[in-house]
Simulated assay, not measured.
Amino acid sequence: MTKTGGRNLNRVRAKVFNMVSTGVVDQPINKLYDILSIIALILNLFAAFAITFDYMEEHYKGLLLAIEAVTTFFFAIDYVLRLFTAKELYPKLSEKDSVIKYIFSFAGLVDLLSFLPYYLPVFFPAGTTVFRLFRVARILRLFRINSYYDQLNVITEVLSSKKQQLTASVFIILILMMASSLCMYSVEHDAQPEVFQNAFSGIWWSVSTLLTVGYGDIYPVTIAGKMLGILISFLGVGMVAIPTGIISAGFVEQYQKLKAVGQFAEEENIHFIRIKLGEEDSWNGKRISEIGFPKDMIVVSIQRENDTIIPRGDVVLRVGDVVALCAEKAKDLQPIELREITINEGHSWNGVAIKDLDISRQSHIFLIRRNGEAIIPRGSVVINAGDVILLQDKYKRVII
């Protein structure tokens, strides 16, 4: 493949990746695809549940089967597109490795099970019942809606950040379950040999007791067993409280993080910027007072080699200085909004000069970061793939 052909393929792949990525709505076709994906999923789940009712199956079976066929075919096309764009999802891997990683990822397995069990009975009629069971995986596609709602996405973030603590608490619960089962066997075996036959016979009892379910089909009858059951019940309340407390603390931390810096994504709201001045930066040799910063934007500090310089109006900037900027809070304690946008191959701004961009009159490009260097935006500057654009909304004020 020629270099030009490879570049065109990468650009097409980037555009398709933006289209199939939930929540990327910078182009009408991307938003339309998201809407179609949600509608297809809702219709598919509706058909799967509705056909279980006798009345619906009797009167609308043909329609429900048609809905399932069309939406499942849509899931198959979506899976193929995601295989094609796997390189964009894992840019640091080779094309082959990125495809393999997507196939065996949780999202990839859910996407595969969303359509494959529907077609497998054609080749293996005997396994129809088992294949139908795997269609439940389609429900897991609902988690993609998390991309639209931070509140829903917090759940997965909390479980991921607290997985070590949760694993430790589950390990403790398992130890207590085995210990309580062995203890109950020791005191109850003689009185109930048919119930507590061996050390593992009390596992079900210990689970229902420690997790405060209290099913009641297995219970101690001796005085020692009842006293032991009371003690284990108290331990069960504490054991359930441990993972509950971990998750609750994780929710508080995550919401504080979201409130402070926003949710990191392809486009994110920021308050602080660090810029290292290169030799070609127009700020070199200028005093801070001579640089036209936007209103409410201030210089926090200047790092020059091993020294930290307190910024004053007469301080002259030099090559190699690391300038820290932030959005100063106004009287209403609401900072101005800055957005950091990473330009990829399929972005509509790629290869377009700043003067030709269709940007709202209430917004302007404040800075461009390219390969670690800061570029002052001018009308003739052409935006390239990989550039990080700092966009300021002049009048809009939000709390991050």
Rank of each mutant, 00 (worst) to 15 (best):
V170P: 03
D307P: 03
L41K: 08
M227E: 13
C326T: 12
F75L: 14
S206K: 00
K163G: 06
V80Y: 09
I341V: 05
S248T: 12
H364F: 13
E267S: 02
R378N: 15
I100W: 15
F106E: 11
I67V: 15
S380A: 08
A47G: 10
C183L: 15
P335M: 01
L235V: 13
I232D: 07
S161R: 08
V398A: 08
I242E: 13
R7P: 01
I77W: 05
F366G: 06
F234M: 11
A260R: 12
T156P: 04
Y102I: 01
I246F: 04
D314V: 08
I365H: 01
G214K: 13
M184F: 02
V207I: 15
Y60F: 05
V316T: 09
V323S: 01
A40W: 05
N18M: 00
I29S: 06
P121T: 00
F264G: 10
I175V: 15
S206H: 00
R82N: 08
T2H: 02
L64Q: 08
T128A: 15
D26I: 05
G214N: 07
V300A: 10
A385G: 02
R82K: 10
V319E: 14
I77R: 05
Y33F: 12
T52I: 10
D314Q: 04
Q151S: 14
N371L: 10
I100P: 14
Y79A: 09
G351A: 11
A199K: 10
E373H: 00
E280Q: 01
Y60L: 02
F124P: 09
E95C: 08
V195I: 15
L89I: 06
S147P: 00
S161C: 00
K396Q: 12
E88K: 06
E279I: 03
G6T: 11
Q362R: 03
Y148E: 12
D356T: 09
G262H: 04
L333V: 04
C183G: 12
Y33Q: 00
G229D: 14
K329H: 12
P335I: 08
V99T: 13
S248G: 06
I145K: 07
V24I: 14
L9Y: 06
P311E: 04
V99Q: 12
D387R: 00
L211Y: 11
D26V: 09
N18P: 00
D281W: 07
I247W: 03
L43S: 13
N8E: 15
Y119H: 04
V213Y: 02
I103E: 08
G346R: 03
D387P: 01
L112C: 01
H347D: 13
D150Q: 14
I230G: 07
T308P: 04
L338F: 05
F272C: 13
C183V: 14
R370H: 05
M297A: 09
V252R: 03
L120D: 06
E58I: 04
N306K: 10
